[in-house]
């Protein structure tokens, strides 16, 4: 598609400048996309394993907890969780990955699980809670990685759209326009020459 411009030498120069900038931008964005993609692929490998591990372990903990629950009455269950003595805080740091802001989580733990008496609870309960506590480390890292992947994926999509817009619309349009203007200018020059020749002939005939 030819852009709406006047076919003048001025416009031609401007178009040529624009083309150079568009090409430079295209190259930069393309590089960015490639690098983001590389990061994403790297993360996918590790997260697939991690996700599976976490899922399996949590499923088994929840299952064991159901067993533990079966052997106590509801009041005891409520009591156990009434006042948790343990606290998990996550300190969040921001990391810059190719100008995408991604979080980095570190786990900080305060206190121990012991918030209930051992007399009315089963060993199964202790075991399942301990196991869950152990998994938390992985859960935190899973949360960090999943967020990163999500943010990267969004950014890649955005970047790719920009690259495509430049590659398939902006740059071809400018190139077409440049061609159009230079042809128009050449045509104008030819018509000028013939007119001059014609005028000369008329002048000579007198």
């Amino acid at each position: 598609m030819i852009l709406k411009v006047n076919a003048t030498r001025m416009e031609l120069l401007q178009m040529k400048k624009k083309l150079i900038i568009a090409k430079k931008g295209h190259k930069l964005l393309k590089d960015k996309e490639d690098e983001l993609m590389r990061q994403l692929l790297e993360m996918i490998k590790s997260i697939r394993e991690l996700r599976k591990e976490v899922e399996n372990e949590i499923s088994s903990v929840v299952g064991r907890y159901q067993f533990a629950k079966a052997s106590m009455n509801k009041e005891t269950e409520d009591e156990i969780f009434l006042i948790p003595t343990k606290k998990i805080n996550i300190s969040v740091r921001e990391k810059n990955l190719m100008s995408v802001r991604v979080p980095e989580f570190t786990k900080e733990v305060e206190g121990k699980i012991r918030s209930y008496g051992y007399a009315f609870t089963s060993g199964e309960l202790d075991a399942s809670l301990l196991a869950l506590d152990k998994i938390m480390e992985k859960v935190v890292s899973l949360a960090e990685k999943e967020k990163t992947i999500q943010l990267l994926a969004d950014e890649i999509e955005k970047t790719r759209r920009r690259v495509n817009a430049l590659e398939y619309i902006m740059i071809p349009n400018i190139e077409d326009t440049i061609k159009y203007i230079s042809q128009r200018l050449a045509e104008m020059e030819r018509s000028n020459t013939t007119r001059l020749m014609k005028v000369k002939d008329i002048v000579r005939a007198h």
């Binding site: 903990v61 929840v62 948790p84 206190g111 399942s128 809670l129 869950l132 506590d133």
Partner: peptide, 10 residues
Amino acid sequence: DAILPYKAIG
């Protein structure tokens, strides 16, 4: 049932 155990670990 699914999330109560989490409470114990903070």
